[in-house]
Amino acid sequence: MTVEQISQQLNLTVFGGNKGLNTEITGGYTSDLLSDVMGFAAVGSVWITLQTHKNVMAIASLKDLAAIVLVKGFTPDPDTLAQANEEGIPILGSKEQSFELSAKIYNLLN
């Protein structure tokens, strides 16, 4: 399932990084601790978090993540968004909180 398909099915906001919307999602990781994601998220995962600063993009890029989804209506910082567009890694948003959103994405992927 691609980032775009998940985004459409769950009615997510696409803030930026549209170039990567066709990337295949192979799993998910839910965490707000950056070192946790750095150490343990798998390639091709969608990362569910409430962190909005630019370092999330650095991690997404270094770990070859498929996309980031911000929860609870959070929006990316301007420099985060700029880097998402530059790297072509989609940054999406949802009004829901991490637990619910993770469950829905899990169900779509499994």
Partner: peptide, 15 residues
């Protein structure tokens, strides 16, 4: 608050 400083840095390097 930024999600750093969870005490995982050096252990991650070691691993």
């Amino acid at each position: 608050e930024m999600g750093f400083g969870a005490g995982m840095g050096l252990p991650n390097i070691k691993e």
